[in-house]
Design a binder for these strands. Structure first.
Length: 899
DNA sequence: CAAGGGTACTCGGTTCGTTCCGG
DNA sequence: CCCGGAACGAACCGAGTACCCTT
């Protein structure tokens, strides 16, 4: 086991040793900071993690490392002791082998007992690691058979059976085994039919047949065009039908356990393809880019790139970015070279050599004018335009998936433009080219009519891949990334996979204790690879780090757990770790946390010289290796499942421990606070809005205004009863000017109040006049305004009077009493309190994005349960689209459901 | 495996358009 | 009742994860 550094690939400069000796370990005990630049001072209150803390809750912080979330749960699951038959084995192995691939043979031992008939209906995981081919085959067959049998037993037998036939008729038979074949033939003999035919009546899910009357079908979209609308059929549905919760029409797939665990995603699929962006319209003759102050003309293809740049001049952030400029200009010049150079007004060739000499302002002005014109359009016109667009696109919005109408998510092909990218992306500014039909692959049912490509064009390919959920696909020219047209979030298929995701996370609950126990043990392994792996799992579990795939040179320089580098982790003895790196989307991950002493030691070890900046901390670990290890515990367990699990688990605990008190608004606020904790755990950040500071000040101002009002009411009490008596009763402080306010502030505030009142009166006056004028009546005279202004004048006078009397405030209102004033003070108290909460809420939310965790990480059933238990309408938590997306959750759980 | 390309899917913040709300 | 801006929601499209297959 040689460990020479030179047999490593070039990019890895320094690597850890294969094994860790006692001496190595001991060396790590010496508490020397491995990194000089630690910013001391902030320490975090966080329970130390010990080996005993196996089901320790998530703890995490964010920015500034100031706050920490720490959740108590400490619940343990007894039921997993018998399900973790792989663990002891692992430990055994490790003790007598020093090789780093100690997990490979394991899998064989782990797998077999998994598949039982009982599980078939429940388990939804179908990804079996490689090297399991045979096993996989067998499992597949068994599952399939069981499913088949089950499906047949279902009440909607005919329908299901039919699908099966189609499925098998279409699929290449390579995994068909006797059992299935038997069924298949039987079915085929019974009622095989050409698919097209089925559309008459019997393709409709059985349930629908019951009413029998209105199973009519209709061509979607503008019939007259007749081009691309040929095949997509849909039911005729009246608008109110949509709302009328028609039990019979709905497909409750989440109750349909027999389906959804194969890899075949559909049996029939019909759709109309994609919508292309409008062709580029060359600029009007008088709008030209200037080169060296001279207007130049170029071919539309080149002009389109200039146009893209010119129309974003207002985005200084991009336009002034050197990389952006460089990339843009390179692509621009290339296109000029390709299409013929720019010409001046006399037709002379102008060679464009310097971006600095290009003046895009005329283009920008033109675009800007067009934008404003569009904005200024009368509402009616806008509506009309929108209606036209909607009609054109109607045919593309839906598809027929296994006979059910489903919404398509992104049916529009992405328009050309300048690529932005996130963070310091090396390719920012490059021109993202127009996608042609020739680049687009269509995925569609064999029997369905293939959408017609635009005239004179053809598709790259037409596939009938039932294992894919996409309808169309192309490759983008910047990163070579694949772009897919898939169904919308509220579709059955997306719902199913969402459901599967959360069920998988819930399953992790059963294994988490074992996993935690194991990694705590393996933190001490003398095999470097194992120890690194254990440490990584620890970080992923505790701090919700992402897996951290390797990335290429041509991508933004961001990392996750496995790709953390030397400089991203700073150690501050005794056991504080400071993470500071750019994660996904170049979002900064900054956190100071206390970790298990052994983890601290390990990180120190993994950072040991000769490693230095740029070297990977987990040099013996890849995401696939890590995931492979995890999948030993549970089928389909990967690093990202921990994020889902921890997020939902955190939310579950927060909601469970919540008290059902207060108003609906209070409950919503409390829910949002929990949501926020999860968002912070997942490091979901957003940039602070430019207006945030001003908004906060405004709110503070409003609060101060209310406090001043309170002060005035209290002063009025003194006007009603003997001050000395009152003061004795309430205390001097009760009547003092609120903290933070002083004479100067009061003077200003009063001035502002008066001014405000005047403003309001004036505005109202003017508006009324306008109205009168519009109606052809006589306008009011200036005198009327003056009269109205008296209110403000009086106010001003009152303030003056008070000032003269040394601040004494006379009681106002009809029949003022101390009691009435006091009631007023109390009312203000509540208003102030709510405002304060709002303000705090806003402040703590300024850089946290709640949406992502709500949409992707928090099991929606938790929210549904909360909504039911606390009697808050679900609308307060889920928007319309979210309610559609989480339809399955809303309809499937009762109050007692637990994550 | 390893390394690397290929593919398909989820996750993610920003932008843009609409609605809501206080004055 | 209207207006302006803030809040909200949907659209957009970029960036990850994960796993496959090949050499």
């Amino acid at each position: 086991m040689s460990d020479s550094e030179d047999d490593r690939p070039l990019k890895a400069k320094a690597k850890s040793k294969d094994t860790i000796s006692k001496a190595d370990d001991a060396a790590m005990d010496k508490q020397i900071p491995t990194n000089g630049h630690v910013n001391p001072g902030i320490s975090i209150a966080m329970g130390p993690v010990t080996d005993m803390d196996v089901d320790k809750p998530i703890t995490n912080g964010h920015t500034n490392g100031k706050r920490k979330v720490s959740l108590a749960n400490g619940k343990s699951y007894k039921d997993d002791s018998d399900s973790d038959d792989d663990v002891p084995l692992q430990k055994k192995r490790k003790t007598n082998t020093a090789s780093s691939d100690d997990d490979v043979p394991l899998k064989k031992i782990v797998k077999p007992p998994k598949v039982t008939a009982a599980m078939v209906g429940e388990e939804s995981d179908d990804d079996v690691p490689i090297g399991q081919k045979l096993q996989q085959e067998k499992e597949k067959i068994e599952k399939k058979a069981a499913n088949e049998a089950k499906a047949l037993r279902r009440k909607d037998k005919t329908n299901d059976a039919k699908r099966k036939i189609k499925k098998q008729a279409d699929s290449d038979d390579d995994d068909d085994k006797p059992l299935i074949k038997k069924q298949k033939t039987a079915l085929l003999n019974k009622e095989a039919k050409p698919i097209k035919k089925e559309e008459s009546d019997d393709d409709v899910p059985l349930k629908k047949k019951a009413p029998a009357k209105k199973v009519k079908k209709e061509v979607v979209g503008p019939v007259k065009k007749g081009k691309t609308t040929g095949t997509v059929k849909q039911e005729e549905k009246s608008a109110d039908d949509e709302e009328a919760e028609d039990e019979e029409e709905e497909y409750r797939w989440w109750e349909d356990q027999a389906k959804g665990d194969g890899t075949v995603k559909w049996n029939t699929l019909e759709h109309n393809g994609v919508v292309f962006p409008p062709e580029y319209e060359p600029l009007p003759k008088h709008v030209k880019m200037l080169y060296d102050k001279m207007p130049v003309t170029m071919k539309p293809d080149a002009e389109e790139i200039a146009y893209a740049f010119g129309s974003m001049l207002s985005s200084a952030h991009n336009v002034e970015n050197p990389t952006f400029r460089k990339n843009f200009f390179a692509d621009f010049k290339d296109m000029l070279d390709e299409t013929g150079h720019a010409k001046d007004k006399d037709g002379n060739t102008i060679k464009i050599k310097q971006l600095e000499k290009c003046d895009f302002q005329p283009i920008f002005d033109h675009v800007d004018a067009e934008r404003s014109a569009k904005k200024a359009l009368p509402a009616a016109d806008k509506k009309k335009l929108k209606a036209e667009k909607d009609e054109k696109e109607a045919a593309f919005m839906y598809c027929m998936w296994d006979g059910r109408k489903q919404k398509v998510g992104n049916f529009r092909v992405e328009p050309p433009g300048l690529f932005r990218g996130r963070g310091e992306h090396p390719k920012t500014g490059k021109f993202k080219k127009r996608v042609t039909p020739e680049q687009i692959t269509i995925n569609i049912g064999k029997e369905a009519m293939v959408p017609k490509p635009p005239d004179g064009h053809s598709w790259k390919e037409v596939k009938h891949d039932k294992e894919g959920t996409w309808l169309a696909m192309w490759q983008e020219n910047i990163n070579g990334a694949y772009k897919y047209v898939m169904l919308a979030a509220n579709s059955d298929i997306k719902g199913k996979s969402d459901f599967k995701k959360f069920e998988k996370a819930r399953e992790l609950k059963k294994h988490i204790d074992t996993i935690r126990k194991d990694y705590h043990q393996e933190l001490r392994s003398d095999v470097m690879a194992t120890r690194q792996r254990a440490t990584a799992v620890y970080l992923i579990d505790q701090f919700a780090l992402r897996a951290g795939n390797e990335k290429g040179e041509e991508e933004a320089d961001t990392v996750g757990c496995c790709s953390l580098k030397f400089e991203h982790v700073t150690l501050r003895p005794p056991e504080t770790v400071i993470f500071d790196f750019l994660g996904k989307d170049s979002i900064r991950f900054y956190d100071e946390v206390k970790v298990d002493a052994q983890v601290f030691k390990n990180l120190k070890l993994f950072k040991r010289a000769p490693k230095t900046e740029g070297d990977e901390i987990f040099d013996r670990l890849t995401t696939s290796g890590l995931n492979k290890h995890l999948s030993n515990y549970m089928q389909g367990l990967t690093a990202k499942v921990f994020r889902t699990y921890n997020a939902s688990w955190t939310m579950a605990n927060l909601l469970r421990d919540m008290k059902a008190e207060g108003t609906v608004a209070n409950k919503v606020l409390a829910y949002n606070a929990a949501n926020r904790k999860v968002a912070i755990l997942c490091n979901h950040k957003r940039t602070v809005a430019a207006t945030h500071g001003a908004q906060m000040e405004k709110m503070e101002g409003r609060i101060d205004g209310l406090r001043y009002q309170q002060y005035r009411l209290k002063q009025q009490m003194l006007d009603l009863e003997t001050p000395a008596k009152l003061k004795k009763k309430r205390g001097e402080a009760y009547f003092a000017l609120p903290e933070g306010l002083d004479e100067e502030w009061v003077a200003k505030h009063q001035e502002a109040l008066v001014e405000e009142t005047r403003d309001k009166i004036r505005k109202k006056f003017e508006k009324e006049n306008e109205k009168l004028a519009a109606e052809g009546q006589k306008e009011m005279k200036g005198k009327e305004l003056e009269e109205r202004m008296e209110v403000a004048d009086e106010m001003e006078a009152k303030f003056k009077r008070e000032h003269k009397k040394g601040g004494k405030i006379e009681a106002e209102g009809k029949g003022p009493t101390v009691e009435k004033l006091e009631a007023g003070v109390e009312k203000l108290d509540t208003r102030i309190a709510t405002l304060k909460i709002q303000s705090e809420d806003r402040e703590s939310n300024k850089e946290v994005a709640l949406g992502t965790s709500k949409i992707n990480y928090i099991d929606p059933r938790l929210t549904v349960v909360f909504s039911k238990k606390f009697d808050v309408p679900i609308e307060r938590f889920f928007s319309k689209t979210l309610r559609e997306k989480f339809d399955w959750a809303i309809k499937s759980v009762e109050e007692d459901w637990e994550f």
